[in-house]
Design a binder for these strands. Sequence first.
DNA 1: GATGAATGAGGTTTCATTCAT
DNA 2: AATGAATGAAACCTCATTCAT
Lengths: 198, 198, 198, 198
Amino acid sequence: MAPLNDEQLHQIRDERKEQIIEAALKVFSRRGIAGTKMSMIAAEAGISHGLLYHYFKSKDELFITLVQRAMIGAHDAMKSIHGLQGSPLDKIKCLTKDILDESGRPYFMLIYQARTSEGVPEKAKELIAQYSLKSFVDELLPVFQEGQQTGDIAAGDPVELISAYLSVLSSLMILNAQDEENYRIPSGDILMRMVTGP
Amino acid sequence: MAPLNDEQLHQIRDERKEQIIEAALKVFSRRGIAGTKMSMIAAEAGISHGLLYHYFKSKDELFITLVQRAMIGAHDAMKSIHGLQGSPLDKIKCLTKDILDESGRPYFMLIYQARTSEGVPEKAKELIAQYSLKSFVDELLPVFQEGQQTGDIAAGDPVELISAYLSVLSSLMILNAQDEENYRIPSGDILMRMVTGP
Amino acid sequence: MAPLNDEQLHQIRDERKEQIIEAALKVFSRRGIAGTKMSMIAAEAGISHGLLYHYFKSKDELFITLVQRAMIGAHDAMKSIHGLQGSPLDKIKCLTKDILDESGRPYFMLIYQARTSEGVPEKAKELIAQYSLKSFVDELLPVFQEGQQTGDIAAGDPVELISAYLSVLSSLMILNAQDEENYRIPSGDILMRMVTGP
Amino acid sequence: MAPLNDEQLHQIRDERKEQIIEAALKVFSRRGIAGTKMSMIAAEAGISHGLLYHYFKSKDELFITLVQRAMIGAHDAMKSIHGLQGSPLDKIKCLTKDILDESGRPYFMLIYQARTSEGVPEKAKELIAQYSLKSFVDELLPVFQEGQQTGDIAAGDPVELISAYLSVLSSLMILNAQDEENYRIPSGDILMRMVTGP
DNA sequence: GATGAATGAGGTTTCATTCAT
DNA sequence: AATGAATGAAACCTCATTCAT
């Protein structure tokens, strides 16, 4: 019998890889790189640990792959603001809601873990530095500036305002990820107040 | 040489213990419990790793001790608001500044680590649950309510407002701890806007 | 397409087997049994590692097959002396040259590896023991004895002389196999001097 | 009770290190680097495998340490010829005997293993290249040249002669190391005949 | 016959913890 | 009280082998 053809193999590879990435994201984001054992990821993905190494050379490489995805995803999320409808403030509200709602929370956690801990692969740190806050600020800057002209957005240095907005947003993602009992997402209104000003 | 008397021995013991706790806090808060090796703590404290075990039965016990201190310290910080001068808003501003300035940041990090990770000793989780957000909210509640009466503080459910305030505050502590390049503490004004409202 | 007939299939099978054996010899002889991975052999043979197991039950079996070939080949080389032309000394010179020139060097290496290492399959050790030095000595004995009678070959116990001759010959094969920079084949003359004597 | 003083600790360290090196030499030289498991060395040394890593960072490092020793030892052996008594030929005979007798055989095996196999740490290969055959030849050259002047040593290119002598000597060390049944050390006389010529 | 995905035993290495001194 | 040698459980990773296609 003929072996599987290229397309089938490719598909299997992609599926497995996706399956592993999903499992790894779940575990890494909750336990950090040091607290995550490869066996946990294998169990979560429902495969043998040996197979992990068929797809990723090492724990570090797997972690780096996730960080890369996360950074690209975050960047895409910021870019999505340009496709939104309505006034600048509407766009910002909508983006805020999307991010807080979004299933991307584990990715935020992951980045947090990567940024926090000192036992993280150098490559991951580089990736994070490369997609720095600045690149996100740049994406949002036109919308905030427009909002300031219409008076919907609080006056003042827009870069500082966006930095603050993103900081708090990140923080909330992180806090909510863990523990829904002790911390609550501040209602959108309260958060928006930061942006709109008095 | 005359042997040290009991009191002197006790003092040495306490000093050593303090020295270890300080070192452990530094390392645990930056690397999490899984990412921290006992040898790192020993090196940071400038002692042999063997000696750690004269003062703490295990890594877990040491971690728990730190969590306990952190929770008590945080609680004390909240209580300190009652001793502050001025209007309710002044008090909140002052507390905010104190916390963001404070050297207690590693403790915040530690609590975050303990809350986040699933590889944390059960006892530590219990401690954190015990000093829950609720106990902090209770401490601040009278001040916020007074502020709402004078109109300095935004109207609405004060518990929700305080929760939001504390969430963001915690988050900012955490973010700032790691990486002062990419995230900036939102200037006090912007943060306060959350609280004062339009 | 008409299916291949039995003979053709058999031929393909034999060719593949030969291809694998050749590749395995190359790798085993250079890296030893423990240092050789099945994937190396597969890569060298240009086939998938899965296919190896259609032709050889296990790594050990493959190794044993090679050892068997090597032993038979070495024995044949010794026997070839009887077909050579000229005086006994001519024959020995010619055999020496043939062996040192010969492409059979990897087989010598392999035998060396098998003899050396303690992690070798028992069966391989038995094979080597079976075709012991003695059987080679026996093959050469008549030629050396004849040489001693004509005075071309140094006097003394011919068995000891042949043993010495074979020892050095083997050793040189091995040394030369690896590293042509640091060791040189002693010129035939020098080697022959061992045999001819003063 | 006071901890051990520096001298005692140093002594323990040295003893253990020696003990490990001795065990490692025994196993590496017989099985090669790939065929040797750290657990084998630990067992041979009568210690836990964990302790191996207290003294050597890795299997490779341990192997490299041994190669270094071997190369230095071999070089020293060659140098020792200058301290010997008698005519040049006496010196060479004595050196030959010393080397063949010597307990340094495992080191020869080790170098052989290191030179042979392709799975050897780069650093080990460099060490071997550095102490190449040439450096040994240089050491023996004056003695051989003197011998040629007195007529005790065969005429001809002395470098070639020494290379041949060393090649055969090495080969014999290797062969004898493994298998005393099948190969015999050619008696000193036969070997010497190579050097003295007809 | 042929492929490569999949498994798991086993090897290397790390590190919390114990213990003799 | 203090040190660092020593242990061993457990983590990471490799690779011989099996198996579905």
